[in-house]
Design a binder for these strands. Sequence first.
DNA 1: AAATAAGCTGACACCAGTGTCAAGTAATAA
DNA 2: TTATTACTTGACACTGGTGTCAGCTTATTT
Lengths: 213, 213
Amino acid sequence: MPIIKSKDQNTSPTGRVRKKNQSIILKAAEQDFLAHGFKGASIKGIAERAGIPRANVHYYYKNKEAIYSDILLEILSLWDSSIITSTEEPAKVLGDYILAKVMYSKTNPEASRIFASEFIHGAPRLQHYLQTSFKTWIDEVKTTIEGWIKLGKMDDIDPLYLLFTIWGATQHYADFSPQVTAAMNKDKLTNEDFEQVAKTLTQIILKGCGITK
Amino acid sequence: MPIIKSKDQNTSPTGRVRKKNQSIILKAAEQDFLAHGFKGASIKGIAERAGIPRANVHYYYKNKEAIYSDILLEILSLWDSSIITSTEEPAKVLGDYILAKVMYSKTNPEASRIFASEFIHGAPRLQHYLQTSFKTWIDEVKTTIEGWIKLGKMDDIDPLYLLFTIWGATQHYADFSPQVTAAMNKDKLTNEDFEQVAKTLTQIILKGCGITK
DNA sequence: AAATAAGCTGACACCAGTGTCAAGTAATAA
DNA sequence: TTATTACTTGACACTGGTGTCAGCTTATTT
């Protein structure tokens, strides 16, 4: 999986062309994976999207798995970057988090969908992540929220169910976009729509958890 | 798409074998689509899962699309079967609906995932559904909820955002199952887990919408 | 118990995608 | 400016999947 990563670091000050081409390939690949799923995507298709011969793609990436790994890594680094800190008040922390998640759905719908697709198919490539950084992240958040509950700042609600609710509700706008737009009679949600989503969802969640700001 | 459907109806009292075999094929296909996505699934793979020669699958279904259509139709018929009626009180109606959705995630996780996968990839095969029965369903529900709001039975919340929240939060347990189980340190959610999910979610949503039963 | 229809399947010709390699061209370092 | 390394690409041999058909067997009807 880190085949290319290591190459990047080892090869001296060279690699301008490499960097440029890899980025072209990755962008094309993201589109292809999105359109056809992991199994359905093909190096042939990726090469065509990227506008370069297939053999050239093979020069940079051994196979489809290698490309996909690179993409997943990038997505993961984005995904849990929004951090919940324990120093602020729950209303502020959760509100910020919900807004961040909604805006992530708006700004990175492709990433969200690839991520979702991976889970739908059993997340075979995310086992390590789920056992390590994801778990520590979860534990931190759990502790924080349990602290709020102990201090009477919110109702006694299982922190995990709260998180799942936020994730599900926010990611829905990226992952089920055709359903959302059909229901709303729109081609595409606007910036204001997303802001309204964040506002409404924050309202429901905060009030629903008994958080009074 | 209805190629087989019509055959079923036209052919006299025969079709016992046909019915049995189609059901075997559909079950195998569901597994294969789930494992590999639409593009990644193959008639070869489906035939192997079903334990019959590939040519025999072709005898019943012209191609992959035909099989997939049959599966999607079945899933759709399940999906919007839970109806929101206007005669009951909001707390009861929404509580029942949330419970039904959570239990659907538990009982039909495969269907939920196939459905999600379809949307993630742009829902090319659901355009007609989204423009017809889905839309009328949405309109009914919108009217009902707006009625509640006018009567002061709940806060002024956009009915669509409320629905999306419920859908996202409930479907999350089927679609992101590996993430959920990892977070909960379990292999599989139990019946009690799902009941607890429904209870917690109902609590958050009802309170969050200002519904006092 | 024939006759007819439904179901089954191996084999065939075909198309799409893979990965590698050798022989080139462009870029960079000495 | 030449030597070296990076990059490019057409061609090849191969694997996996498709759809059809002819000839067979099993059900069903008369």
